[in-house]
Design a protein around this nucleic acid. Structure first.
Lengths: 414, 414
DNA sequence: CATCGAATTGAATCCAGCC
DNA sequence: GGGCTGGATTCAATTCGAT
């Protein structure tokens, strides 16, 4: 490590984080580069890429410290196969938020997420996307993740820059943060846009069959159900606090890379953070290039990636989707036509009645509530399973609404 | 039907589709309007709206034929409660693109023309969204549905026009069209953006409690699983072919209107198509205004809506929201004899005590304050809901003072 | 050591009414 | 309109602590 080479001039990115996690100065002459075009020797399982040698000056499996736009400008054109980008979301936090128990939510309020205006954010987006597009090979694809705060601006900018949108993928969170004030729907997903470099990029990588086999032999859909990054996977500092506020789950990156890259490919992440992309790339035998501005993040990423052992059998990497019994809202029974608003529900012994409302609640006299609450109230009990308690009359016979739930579950394949 | 009235001048929308489905010419002087400010008499179950009369010149429960931007310009400002919009998606080059003036864009692979296409689509989007925003009441909200072809441009334009995004909702399709060529993920969802008129619109309608009750007593999430519109619900022409290519399922509209509107509200749909919004609005006791430029769609919509039977009042009556229940002073509990001055209050786990004073305040040692303030002080928290925190001993058991508040509310009929 | 319950936490544009 | 205050508001998963 440490060979300097003459390269693009520029002020940024003069520092790389070596694989030991130390910060090292590099000469002003250009990017730090590995001593050969081969992958970093610490990444034992990275196969040599088919289809041509890698450019000599590609800083493979390294983290380039500095502004990502400046770093991008110094990478060779048309040199990477896939890009995964998790840019700042431009959250607009009005004020502190507390949970119902009055504890404070540790929100993202870092400086890197602050922009003065939409216009500023758009300029920033256009700049880094342009830089990314230049280093993408002709058939490379790009993933960008975001929330409703920023993803619309990112998507529009992608289209303006002649990227070609292939899919928008919804990451449905298994365990999202609730809406504490009850003023909106629970914000339970984020959106990823998958785009090719241009409409002409017809030979982009997509492992259709692998995705299909990993999904019980049906086509992988555009909505993915994956838990948040928590537990041991979440990087924590010596103080026990999370190192990065928005670390993404490895399962998400694994599905991204397995579907749209090949072993030996070069994966670029311009907002590397604590290196989830690099860790998963190494695990799956891909090369990575990480760009990161914050030395603390970069150092944590380096240490993390050095601890990753490449998988010997990549096929096991596609973690099966979390399977829990799907929650069926009673409202779905109305939507599916199994029961009707205004209809009367009764119990097996026909002692109690309640009326179905159009919004999926029940009424019992003046009281409105869920099937469970009204079931409990009817019987004077503290709790009740409304699914098994309530019945409707069909052809003169009582049918339990749980039968309809089973039908709905069957319909949705859950 | 057929009363003309002097209104805003303008060239478009001189035709309305009467509820019999006939196309009728209307004078150049303005919009067709019903003969009174009350809802269309064919909509028997539409309750009269609380909170003020409707503007006299609002064409309730009608379909205005013509260009939606022109029609919007003639509706009175700040007159509608909710908007649902399903704008044209046709952005991809393979499909025709309509300019704001409805001339056809001859889309080709030419870069310049492609830019022009996005730009045209943006102008169109900006035009109709501006028109919609003008007719929205201060606390009205807007829903727009789209796919990755157009939703990013719509979302960015919404933000540019100072709409305030509340949620993006993912409609997960139960039975999406498979991806035949196996080159992408199955496009199994569409996206809806829910936005208020501005960041100041804090009192928008959201039936949080109803949604939660309808969803197993947990918050409704931003991902909704709803089947496509098929079967009998799908409008078919005499040739057996579908009348409209993208007819939305009524279940989707039902959840939209149930969550974000009240009975008697005015629901505007500027791209009415075959009238799903109108059909669901009528069924749920809401008023609608539909704008549609294709006479065939409008005619099919009119016939469809006329066949809709509104649901009974009991199944759609507005549910009381807990947060808007009448405020009861703690002093009323003393006055009603539910608690006594000098009595000791304690929390559920009997860790804290406070004494009730005759004026409805509590004392904790030397400190005097409200049930909330003293509750917060006891626990060392910044805030506390005294109603649910404090209990009194009755027959050896702890009773929450919130139970007494419920009794008081029942007594005063609130 | 196992088990049960309490505490913690996560990309969040998160209050309303009265004076 | 600004300021004050009453009081409404959380789901799933993991970790920690007590028994």
């Amino acid at each position: 490590m440490g060979t300097s080479r003459t390269g693009a001039a520029g002020a940024a990115s003069r520092i790389v984080v070596s694989r030991t996690g130390r910060l090292a100065s590099a000469p002003r002459t250009g990017l730090k580069a590995p001593s050969s075009a081969l992958p970093n020797p610490s990444l034992k399982a990275v196969p040599v890429r088919k289809g041509g040698a890698l450019p000599e000056d590609l800083p493979l499996n390294q983290i380039l410290l500095g502004d990502c736009i400046a770093s991008l400008a110094k990478l060779p054109a048309e040199s990477v196969d896939v890009v995964f980008a998790d840019p700042p979301y431009n959250l607009q936090l009005e004020q502190a938020l507390t949970r119902p128990d009055h504890s404070l939510v540790d929100a993202v309020d870092d400086d890197w997420d602050k922009f003065a205006s939409f216009s500023d954010y758009d300029s920033f987006t256009r700049a880094w996307l342009s830089g990314v597009r230049r280093v993408m090979k002709k058939n490379a694809t790009l993933w960008v993740i975001g929330s409703y705060h920023n993803i619309f601006r990112v998507g529009a900018t992608l289209q303006d820059l002649d990227f070609w949108l292939l899919n928008d993928i919804v990451w449905r969170k298994a365990n999202p943060m609730p809406n504490f004030r009850g003023r909106r729907f629970t914000n339970a997903h984020e959106t990823m846009i998958w785009a090719s470099k241009s409409a002409d990029s017809k030979s982009y990588t997509f492992h259709y069959d692998a995705m299909k086999s990993a999904n019980e032999d049906v086509q992988m859909r555009s909505d993915w159900f994956i838990p948040l990054c928590t537990g041991d996977e979440r990087l924590k500092g010596e103080d026990g606090r999370k190192v990065h506020p928005t670390q993404k789950p490895e399962a998400l990156l694994a599905r991204v890379l397995l579907s749209s890259s090949n072993p030996g490919d070069v994966v670029l992440d311009p907002f590397f953070g604590t290196g989830t992309t690099g860790a998963v790339a190494k695990k799956l035998g891909r090369n990575f290039i990480g760009l990161e501005r914050d030395p603390a993040y970069a150092k944590a990423a380096r240490a993390r990636i050095d601890g990753v052992e490449p998988l010997s059998d990549i096929s096991i990497a596609a973690a099966p989707e979390k399977r829990t019994e799907t929650r069926v809202p009673f409202l779905s029974l109305l939507e599916g036509g199994h029961v009707k608003a205004g209809e009367t529900l009764t119990d097996e012994r026909r002692r109690f009645q309640a009326t179905i409302r159009a919004d999926g609640t029940l009424t019992l006299g003046p009281v409105i509530g869920s099937i469970h609450k009204i079931g409990a109230l009817s019987q004077g009990l503290p709790a009740c399973n409304g699914w098994t308690f309530w019945h409707v009359l069909r052809d003169g016979k009582l049918v339990c609404i749980d039968d309809f739930r089973a039908k709905v579950r069957a319909e949705i394949g859950a």
